[in-house]
């Protein structure tokens, strides 16, 4: 029993990272209909940035993280303005191709700026907490807490603010939102800024828990899209549930079945869910 609880705890930590990645993807997809493949690479850019600030420049982690989040918002806005806005009214395939090209470009920029070596963000969080026999390393605890805070903050923003209402209005019916006086030109900018900020937070978590290296962002975005499909396209609660389900499934598969096939088993679970609920766990039926 203790082992099961420990494995679930392990899974919740990695699942929290998946949740943040998937939240960013689902908001962009749900509201703008764009499959933003470069999201993982941009997230890792944020992780690299924190690493450089902390390890090379001696900046405090607590200062480096907000700086990276703000830079991430700016980068997200720029991506929307320069890459996706020009094809906003064009065929969907254009945005799709831009997303692929952007992924390669951002990966290349990361490689040029930060090199090919893997990097681990030095946090100094070495303590280990034990609760009823279940151990939780300090970094994992902070990852879970930070993800929870970000999810609550995002939900509050989307549900409780005027801008959030405008975002939801655009997601539901863009034309009606225009008629109601919503400034639809600014909404994509805000969505991308918010989405990229969440991605950067996930990148920092990956860099602190594990490591950032070329290719990690691409792997994360694949997991993010799996969560998106599992939870239901465009559904924020679906992304949260889906991320946790994927993380816990991976941990249980590696712990109780075979670590060699943990990714396969996680995706098998996803397929099984989709067989019974094609719209995903919390996606709306069409």
């Amino acid at each position: 029993m203790l082992e099961l609880v420990q494995q679930i705890t392990n899974g919740v930590a990695i699942g929290s990272v998946y949740v943040l990645i998937a939240l960013g993807l689902t908001t962009v997809f749900g509201i703008l209909g764009i499959a933003h493949f470069a999201h993982g690479s941009v997230s890792m850019f944020g992780g690299y940035l924190v690493y450089v600030l902390v390890a090379s420049q001696g900046v405090s982690l607590w200062l480096a993280i907000p700086v990276a989040l703000i830079v991430g918002m700016g980068v997200g806005g720029l991506i929307e303005f320069l890459a996706y806005r020009p094809v906003r009214n064009a065929n969907h395939i254009n945005a799709f191709i831009i997303a692929l090209g952007l992924t390669m470009m951002v990966e290349g920029i990361n490689l040029q700026l930060f090199g090919a070596d893997q990097v681990v963000i030095p946090t100094g969080f070495d303590r280990v907490f034990e609760i009823a026999g279940v151990t939780i390393p300090e970094t994992r605890l902070y990852v879970i807490l930070a993800a929870t805070v970000l999810v609550i903050a995002m939900t509050a923003f989307v549900e409780g603010t005027k801008t959030g209402q405008a975002i939801r209005a655009v997601a539901q019916n863009r034309d009606a939102a225009i008629l109601m006086g919503v400034n639809v030109r600014s909404i994509p900018l805000i969505v991308f800024a918010m989405s990229t900020m969440l991605g950067v937070a996930a990148g920092v978590m990956v860099g602190s828990l594990f490591a950032i290296a070329p290719g990690v962002g691409e792997a994360m975005v694949v997991k993010g899209f799996a969560v998106l499909i599992l939870g239901g396209l465009g559904s924020i609660p679906g992304a949260i549930i889906g991320g946790l389900v994927l993380g816990v499934t991976e941990a249980l598969a590696a712990g109780f079945l075979s670590s060699a096939y943990k990714d396969v088993i996680a995706f098998v679970v996803m397929i099984v869910v989709l067989l019974f609920r094609p719209q995903g766990l919390l996606g709306g039926a069409k």
Partner: peptide, 19 residues
């Protein structure tokens, strides 16, 4: 217990080993 060359989270395997 196996891990892949790119794996960085070995806590599930280590939890199993601990048990």
């Amino acid at each position: 217990e196996a891990f892949g060359l790119k794996d960085r989270d070995m806590s599930p395997q280590l939890t199993k080993i601990r048990a």
